[in-house]
Design a protein around this nucleic acid. Sequence first.
DNA 1: CGTCTTTTTGAATACTGTCAATTTAAGTGG
DNA 2: CCACTTAAATTGACAGTATTCAAAAAGACG
Lengths: 262, 262
Amino acid sequence: MSTATLQAPLRAFKITPVPAAARATSVSTLQTQCSSCHLRDLCLPCGMNAPEVERLDSLMFTRRRVAAGQTLYREGEKFQYIYAVRSGTFKSSLTLADGREQVSGFHMAGELMGLDGVAQGKHASSAIALEDTEICAIPYSHLNELAMQNSNMQHVVSRMMSREIVREHSLMMLLGSMNAEERLAAFLLNLSQRLKTRGYSASEFHLRMSRAEIGSYLGMKLETVSRTFSAFQQQGVLEVDKRHIRVLDLDRLARAVEMRVH
Amino acid sequence: MSTATLQAPLRAFKITPVPAAARATSVSTLQTQCSSCHLRDLCLPCGMNAPEVERLDSLMFTRRRVAAGQTLYREGEKFQYIYAVRSGTFKSSLTLADGREQVSGFHMAGELMGLDGVAQGKHASSAIALEDTEICAIPYSHLNELAMQNSNMQHVVSRMMSREIVREHSLMMLLGSMNAEERLAAFLLNLSQRLKTRGYSASEFHLRMSRAEIGSYLGMKLETVSRTFSAFQQQGVLEVDKRHIRVLDLDRLARAVEMRVH
DNA sequence: CGTCTTTTTGAATACTGTCAATTTAAGTGG
DNA sequence: CCACTTAAATTGACAGTATTCAAAAAGACG
């Protein structure tokens, strides 16, 4: 739990505003090797030994940039790759029958996307970049070939999928039994924890998603999200300036989730 | 989609009331083979060819009875088996911090349980029989060994896990964007569809779970579940007698879900 | 610098939850 | 087999929370 937290410069968000939009289809592809990747302890190779990671290297995953607002894959498209986030943030979402969007997750560096496509051979959700991002495309069929040769490799893939199931379990719990404050607290705590694991500050960060996207994810309206942020600020739990968040009282956030008195 | 629906006798529920409670620990074990199982087209072997199913047979899964109210596995226990339901209904649930129960799913014949345990090596939820049941215990390690020899076998297991992810996606959507009537309608439609696939009536069935359990699953209180049943009855959509349900207007149920106007 | 999007806030409404009482069914033991 | 006890389900009245509708403020972008 006591991972070294290399306090990353948060101001960088403002100092170097990413050139959004533009070069949407600029498919600047590169090859990458897991063994030399700075994310190797977070991502797919986590839990593998050296010779296993070398095998992964032989697959030569394709690296690609995805600009803010661009779609990596779309619901219904043929499933061929799973994707690992190298940098930046994605949302995954489904389109409801009436055309509205339902956000089903947010993904950051080292996390895998697209595992829900294995079931039907086509993607069950869409992935959209919330800022300029970089990803690794991992051919699912190649991964399966490797898994057939090595039982641990196979286990790693299965564990990734199972982890996804557990993640959704906890989200369901959240949606099913928490009120607005508890939901937002749970969301912020989760985000804080993931940022910390990645070497960023756990107490001060910049949200990459809109109030509407948070609301969709948490099952509440954007106005309620906004009001709840304001309430937390008034209670002295947070300092909120649009998307810039500063956690003043982490314990109280945690207690709000633990209590879950509803 | 047009599966033969061998209308099973529903009255059987009342004619042969199962002797609940009692013989909780009577571990009457038997060996089973997938190739001769009547659930082979629904369950694990679905999508495999004959020689592959034969390999499954070599594992000789253990069959076991679990009496109504008994626990098959508990949250936190060591994960060794995944389980296939042979007959009867299970619920899976998590215990919240304050001791309350959160139902995360209902499982019937041919469905797999326990896949959420792969991630941590221990079960992430508990499985409890809602009536007298029978299950197959599938040693996960043996299954992995088979998967290493055969790529299709491996794919079958992955697909099962992915299906679980997709299933939870849709539940999240439901919890996040539907009101009480839409939730219950979605629940009943799903149940109806699964019963139909198993050869039972799609329009008349007996609920194996309490209002409280339905409520926990759907993220609403038991009183609201009860009220919503009553509302559907008044609208002429359902005929409700405690746990016995008769669907009078399937289309209107379906429309309630499709609209999702909230 | 004007336009468009995002966010905040207010007021009224609608929905679900809470508390409580009653009915019905089911299980227990004489 | 019947009276008793317990659990499950229904229903009403009221309270509380989140949604809806609307308007204004603050940024972002070209």
